[in-house]
Design a protein around this nucleic acid. Sequence first.
DNA 1: AACCCCGCCAACCGCCCTGTA
DNA 2: ATACAGGGCGGTTGGCGGGGT
Length: 319
Amino acid sequence: MMMSNSAITKIIDKNKPNHACGGGTGNNNKPKRRKGLWSPDEDEKLIRYMLTNGQGSWNVIARNAGLLRCGKSCRLRWYNYLRPDLKRGSFSPQEEDLIVHLHSMIGNRWSQIATQLPGRTDNEIKNFWNTTLKKRLKNNSNNTSSGSLPNNIICNFLDPSDQHVDMGGKSNPMMDSYHHHDDMKVVANTVRMYSSSFSFAPVVSGVSLNQFDPLISVPYHNRCQQMGNKENIFNVNGLGDYGNVILDPIGKRAWVESERFLPPSENTNVIACTTNSSLNMLGMENSSWDIENPKIGDWDLDGLIDNNSSFTFLDFQVD
DNA sequence: AACCCCGCCAACCGCCCTGTA
DNA sequence: ATACAGGGCGGTTGGCGGGGT
């Protein structure tokens, strides 16, 4: 990759102001490896080398660029800070929602999450999660609100007569369960729900979510495979096919996502959410399976997202 | 003005995986 | 089969800076 000197200078200049904290100590007289903060001079050397020579062995890069850094340090600096395609600035609400959702699905796989947010690094996302989002989620879970969920889809129906819910004039088996756990909520966008198409009760049993650590997301189809099911779809009492179960032990909540038990005309998803810490979405009263120690399987995030029409709240473009 | 506390984030550390000799 | 090096990744740390007292 070749680039003009002026273009290189622009990129170097763009990165300069971010070193107000003063650069590395450099007091060490030994010509050994430098550690600590990168100086503007070091950044410039690395940028020039990368833009004129491209990537290669990081140890070779460090040496040829005239840096007294180890290859690892150079790689980190380039990927996390210097490369030109990085996006700067705070995270947008859409990015936040996406991070929350992806984290709920795959946990602390920051590099995989970063692949879904162009211009963001795994380190950046990790920091953002640890300093901001985790705290926010915890605070939200202490309230009864569903604030940690994407804010464009929240619709509580603690009251069965809630106007947002079309019960089709039938009794809903969910309500039995619902009355047992009166802090249960259903969160949805454009909700229309039919008694024959939604049964929450079988999914609930009495095991604390605290056993799951840390945030764990177990897609139903993954566990169905573990249970030896042939299909990647799970059928609850013949009433509906569930997509994912997301557990949030920190927030002590769990929710189910699916669009399959909604009328086909409804391009939406339903998230059944509970703030009751004694609920366990993994157990089924009327079925034979119960997994107490779920593991995050190796599943294809790209495929999941590609196949993720049910996550309508993720229907946005990340610039 | 000085001090303290705390949040943020860049960078390091250590482990693991993979490729190669 | 084994050792080694390079690279990737998640967890953690340390320093800076802003806000509060």
